[in-house]
Amino acid sequence: MKTYNNKAWWLVLPVFALVAFSAIIPMMTVVNYSIQDIFDPNTRYFVGTEWYREILADPRLLDSLLRQFVYSLCVLVIEVPLGIIVALSMPRRGLGVPVSLILLSLPLLVPWNVVGTIWQIIGREDIGLYGWILNSIGLDYNYASNPRDAWATVLIMDVWHWTSLVALLCYSGLRSIPDVYYQAARIDRASHWAVFRFIQLPKLKNVLLIAVMLRFMDSFMIYTEPFVLTGGGPGTATTFLSQTLTQMALGQFDLGRAAAFSLIYFLIILLVTWVFYTAMTHNDDKG
């Protein structure tokens, strides 16, 4: 049970000040922009809720929102179990530990535009390994013209890029389980499944919450990688929310509309994340 002590606020104050500076001021600005037609800070007109009405009536918002949910769901369903399996398969001691840690983290360190470039090349049937293999075993694979292939490629790219994050988090969570737990399990002749279910999984709960939320939030605002890989196409098959925002607004430097879209976008993320977070932390109090 935690003690109630309001002096703990002093420990939180630096974080509060720092984040307030870089979050609250910009957020206020976005709200201000969203109800005006802005050309520059001195040339602006009050338009009220016009931008909101326009964006909410735009079918592109609903389309990309739906696509976004399906995509984020796929990402979670594939990456979280795979990440746990990889973390459980990590060597526990010896030279294998640093080697596999470094190799695992490689995809995370590639700048996001380069990630897109790598998969853009490797998926091409003339000069890329995967595209060439798929085509030579008789599959008609082309991510640039076939929406299904484009989807699969973006998804596999995401799995390649981010599963390591889940794995690394879970691995460090596993490392923080004291050895006595395993010794006790060995004395009790617990099965591997029992060890996982009753020792490892409960201890992983904290890091797993972080991993799931991070993957959800990041996949929900994915932009650079699919933009480089497919440019949102073919058609609008891989145009996700962030790209719709950029296309619709920033491309035309239409600040008011962009701000209104941003706020709607933010409200969607806020609601979904809140539901997620509440659902996952709710049994905390019961132990």
């Binding site: 509060f16 600005t29 800070p41 939030m217 932009y223 962030s242 941003s262």
Partner: peptide, 23 residues
Amino acid sequence: MFFWLLTNRMAPPAVFLLPFFQL
């Protein structure tokens, strides 16, 4: 406070580009 901190992790950077530039 904790949840508010998290909300900053979820804000898409595209939202903050312009205000940041001016700030």
